[in-house]
Design a protein around this nucleic acid. Structure first.
Lengths: 112, 112
DNA sequence: AAATAATACATAGGTTTCTTAGGTATATAA
DNA sequence: TTATATACCTAAGAAACCTATGTATTATTT
């Protein structure tokens, strides 16, 4: 787990990226996906996630669809056309930011 | 300029790294150095910098030396022995974090 | 000479973003 | 039947930062 300090400011970018490559996802699913994809190194808290999802929906970046699964509801989020641009911009900006920070901190690119 | 959202959480890391490779720096000098090294893409605000420097000093991570330059004071910060460990840890953590985020966002390492 | 910009420090108040903690409810495993 | 997992949500507070402001000296421009 990374110190929460670092993760700050990346939540929206993560959500938007995941919804760019997945047709639709519901909140809980996003937390599990991030946990799995990062080997537990990033764990989103629901207290941060849900308000952010609501805000993104209010901004027209995400749209929702409520589905009944048995007796339980599940709220699927999808990215809108507007949202796709925002997602690309966010990811691009973060990518550039990483480059700048690597220069500044004198970090070498990790060879895969 | 990057959105301030992104820069959040990296301020301490930047300060500590710069003071790891420079014997001593004063606050204003740090802002100028970061501005220059990043081509203006990262600009530290004084309202964020000074309180952070004070906090790092209070934690024994930095030590200070006040110098008179003409009629003006200049407060030099140096990294302590303890601080060097903290600096390494911070940079290492950030480096790992970058790796995780690049995987998650499906970013390719930039070829230099 | 006067006005502006740059240097150099600092803090107070507000905003954003996240954490902690709690709440509701169903389904499954021990 | 008790705990864990699934699945949603919010309120209160903390943390980190920005904006604005203040003080003061030095350099540059007009």
């Amino acid at each position: 787990m990374y110190s929460s300090e670092l993760i700050k400011g990346t939540l929206k970018t993560i959500i938007l990226k995941l919804l760019s490559v997945n047709d639709k996802l519901y909140g809980y699913e996003i937390t599990q996906m991030v946990k799995e994809l990062t080997g537990g190194k990033i764990q989103l808290t629901e207290g941060a996630l849900y308000p952010t999802l609501h805000a993104l929906e209010a901004q027209g970046i995400l749209s929702t669809e409520v589905v009944n699964v048995g007796n339980r509801i599940r709220k699927y989020y999808s990215i809108t056309q507007t949202g796709k641009k925002v997602a690309n911009d966010k990811v691009d900006e973060f990518s550039e930011f990483i480059g700048t920070m690597m220069d500044l901190l004198d970090l070498k690119p990790k060879l895969v």
